[in-house]
């Protein structure tokens, strides 16, 4: 019997997950984009990164729709469940009495969106960010953090991170904060769900390890769990 090197065996073990991720990257058939009303032209225009940065610089915060608020929410899911609507850029935390706390989010850019049912497997304050090898390949600047960037205000993961698991396996996706708060409302990440630091800290204080997380994104391929 051929004995494979342990690293190769590990890679083989991850092949199904990698295949799902590749599929997820290819199968985003319909990408929804946020639009913002321009009172000058009286038209809805695409909420691009440039438009988002301009709005944030002018107002010091994201559009009102993306600010934290309690909304009516008819659901059979139990309080503490997180529901992410990637198409509308909202994260809902289910509350008692058919209500939810709604937060604005940034989600995966074209080819990086996904949908599925996962759970919070781990939580961390001011998490360390370690760029994956493929990110280092795309952005050599990130190579200096190959061994991990300590938590802090410049860290891309922001103030808090909730690690999403499928069963007992890390999905590699997280709900986290950001050092780019103007990106809320955009399809901009590599598949993670980002909130501004104040919101992610609020969410972090309200959820527990084991909480169910339902991720909806029309046209995106399914992650595991369903």
């Amino acid at each position: 019997m051929i004995k494979l090197p342990s690293a190769f065996r590990t890679l083989l073990g991850w092949l199904p997950a990698l295949a799902v991720l590749v599929f997820a990257g290819m199968a985003l058939a319909q990408s929804f984009q946020t639009q913002i009303y321009d009172p000058t032209t009286r038209k809805w225009v695409d909420y691009t990164p440039r438009a988002a940065a301009k709005f944030y610089n002018r107002h010091g915060q994201s559009p009102e729709e993306f600010r934290r608020q309690v909304v009516p929410f008819r659901t059979a899911e139990k309080p503490g469940t997180i529901i992410i609507d990637g198409d509308r850029h909202f994260l809902y935390l289910v509350q008692p009495n058919f209500q939810a706390i709604r937060y604005g989010i940034g989600v995966g850019r074209d080819g990086f969106g996904w949908a599925g049912i996962v759970k919070i497997g781990r939580m961390q304050e001011w998490p360390t960010w370690t760029p994956p090898p493929e990110m280092i390949a795309r952005d050599p600047e990130s190579a200096k953090w190959a061994n991990g960037m300590p938590g802090g205000p410049d860290n891309p993961l922001g103030a808090r991170a909730m690690y999403l698991y499928v069963g007992n396996k890390d999905s590699i996706y997280r709900i986290h904060g950001t050092n780019q708060p103007w990106t809320i409302g955009l399809n901009i990440s590599s598949g993670c769900i980002r909130l501004n630091n104040e919101d992610v800290s609020d969410l972090y204080s309200r959820v527990e390890v084991g909480a169910k997380v339902i991720v909806l994104m029309q046209g995106a391929a399914l992650y595991k769990g369903v």
Partner: peptide
């Protein structure tokens, strides 16, 4: 209103 947002698709 100024700053109102919506999604480009209807779900």
């Amino acid at each position: 209103s100024a700053g109102a947002v919506r999604s480009s698709g209807e779900t």
